[in-house]
Design a protein around this nucleic acid. Structure first.
Lengths: 343, 343
DNA sequence: CTCTGGGGTTGACACGTTTTAATGACATGA
DNA sequence: TCATGTCATTAAAACGTGTCAACCCCAGAG
């Protein structure tokens, strides 16, 4: 029935004061070789583990970062998370991982948990794009880096990929394949990712001399495969004249769409061309290997974390940065038929 | 330059003592209607957020659960995590999510973070199977529920799926399809999942009157698609007589294998049959829809969390349970050719 | 009138750590 | 011998919350 072992018990065992133990833990250089060894042995013998809450309470903030993504089930975000964790743990930070599951309510709830835990900083892929959420955090002196979300404002860091350019790349590819009528399968427009990719798509249309009526929009509630299937069914039901090509705001959506199309006996890309976004690992292995728009996912997480830690480290004068990567088109089989597509 | 707002500031503003504010937060029924309203308003006005570290410090434990999985990039585990988060947040608990990335060192490091944060309990998919890790946690009075890991020991809870039965199902399916020589693509044998599925596979072989030499084992370092590709390349390189069928310990491995086979012009299932494990969402959408072994993934997370919370709630006399689900075979196209397979 | 009881509220302490100013030990130089 | 300085260690005071015994007030009973 060993009582909880704290810095005090360690001190007693090593024959020093609690303050010295604390010094061994935090500024080992200030303590004499011999005593340090004694303390360290006592720590091992007692199996002491520092009480993080007490440290946090005393310091006013923890050594934990909060990472909030839109959807943990999306390989895109787990890749980002890998990048975040790698850097964070390298620097001695732990990561509190949470998913807003594309719901404003869950986002707020999770941010409250972050706040209660007094996380040192937050990496946020916001659900809405108003920036209000981030502002509220900054008011509380919590550094925030926007993740996969650009910002025009100079008072905060952000790391993002140019989704307008990406949308343009995708649709240009479809148009180059010969498509003249399109469908855009997308999640809710409050998601900046969707809105920007749509803008890019429209831009590509315009550049090709087509009006926006050439692209039918098929909005669904979430950015996952299930919603993709729903979208495809809706497309099939509402009219036989299928579009020449479909642009999905997301690879998950695209995989769902693809599945339903194939089940309905529709050939991809011969009957309908298809392109997704994110280039998740599974896209290359799909029934018809999926063309997509690749982003430097892992890098996104790394860079964002580095910026955040730099901002947390008040010693260094930190200049806010808005990093913007360029996406890259990955052409596989789904986007244009071997013949060059319908014309 | 507002000073940090704590229970004390709230008390002052509401004209009550700090103790009362604490009561409003933790035992609202003990405080009179009118004062409660006043306090709650003060809380809103000041934007007060309870300091979790202080609570934790005082209480001796947080209201946070630790969840450690083998691989966050594996949809199997993100599904489990969804189940965990749903139950946890329903009961007012937060979830500290960590991935051991199939590395003993990372597992230990993350568990140390859990320990420092004084998590209330841990859901653990252990990397090794010796049970020592779980024991050490229990010594510290941290309730542990083993997740996706059965235990014969009556002194702890566990939730698992019968992987031996699953391995048997998978291989029997391949044998029923006419296969006589097999390959087993698997992660390291320290992973219980791999070891058990292998045992099941061997049992199926025996039942069919075949010796263990009928199944060639192809071990790889990790349970992901990249490793699957590596395994397939190794199979292709080492000899033209390919096995009739391949059993992968994991859908991720199977997707990797599938990809390389198809690239090499090998027809699945005509030339080689293939079956995976987990039935992740992407398997159905693969180039050749993947046969697999389905587990009640989401349920796994839910039940495990319920058990853990029950164990944390010391008031209720908690009886340790070992829950074991049965897996289910999902036959798609990859496991047997339309003709009934080679014979 | 006093006594009793109970609901509502308070004040003070404890939780485990970090930090700061103070203390002690010891050597050096005057 | 004493002043001075350096280095290692210590004692004590926070940090913000939860708990618990004590307290106050008022109603109802005697």
């Amino acid at each position: 029935m060993s009582r909880t072992v704290g810095i005090k018990q360690v001190a007693e065992r090593a024959g020093v004061s609690p303050g010295t133990v604390s010094n061994v833990l935090n500024r080992p250089e200030r303590v004499a070789e011999a005593t340090r060894a004694r303390v360290e042995q006592a720590i091992r013998e007692l199996g002491f583990v520092r009480n993080g809450s007490a440290s946090t309470l005393r310091a006013g903030h923890s050594s934990t970062l909060g990472l909030m993504v839109l959807d943990l089930a999306n390989p895109f975000f787990t890749d980002v998370a890998r990048g975040v964790e790698d850097i964070a743990s390298e620097r001695g930070y732990a990561v509190l991982l949470a998913s807003s599951a594309e719901s404003a309510e869950r986002e707020q709830r999770n941010l409250r948990v972050f706040a209660e835990q007094r996380v040192r900083g937050v990496l946020l892929t916001p659900f809405g794009d108003d920036g209000e959420t981030a502002d509220r955090l900054r008011e509380r002196n919590v550094p925030v880096v926007l993740l996969d979300h650009p910002t025009p404002r100079a008072n905060q860091c952000s790391v993002a990929v140019d989704d307008v350019a990406g949308g343009e790349l995708a649709v240009r590819e479809l148009l180059d394949g010969g498509a003249r009528t399109l469908a855009f399968v997308t999640g809710p427009m409050v998601l900046r990712q969707c809105a920007d990719r749509r803008r890019g798509a429209l831009r590509a249309l315009r550049a090709a001399g087509l009006g926006r009526e050439a692209m039918r929009e098929v909005p669904v509630g979430a950015m996952n495969a299930r919603s993709g299937q729903e979208a495809a069914r809706r497309l099939l039901e509402t009219g036989p004249p299928l579009p020449d090509a479909i642009f999905c705001a997301n690879d998950l959506l695209a995989l769902g769409v693809l599945r339903v199309l194939l089940q309905a006996g529709i050939k991809v890309p011969t009957d309908v061309a298809l392109i997704g976004y994110d280039d998740i690992e599974f896209s290359a292995a799909a029934a018809v290997p999926l063309s997509s728009v690749r982003q430097p996912t892992y890098q996104l997480g790394r860079i964002a974390t580095e910026l955040l830690l730099e901002e947390c480290d008040e010693s260094a004068g930190h200049a806010h940065q808005q990093v913007m990567f360029q996406p890259e088109l990955v052409v596989r089989e789904s986007s244009r038929s071997a013949s060059g597509g319908p014309s």
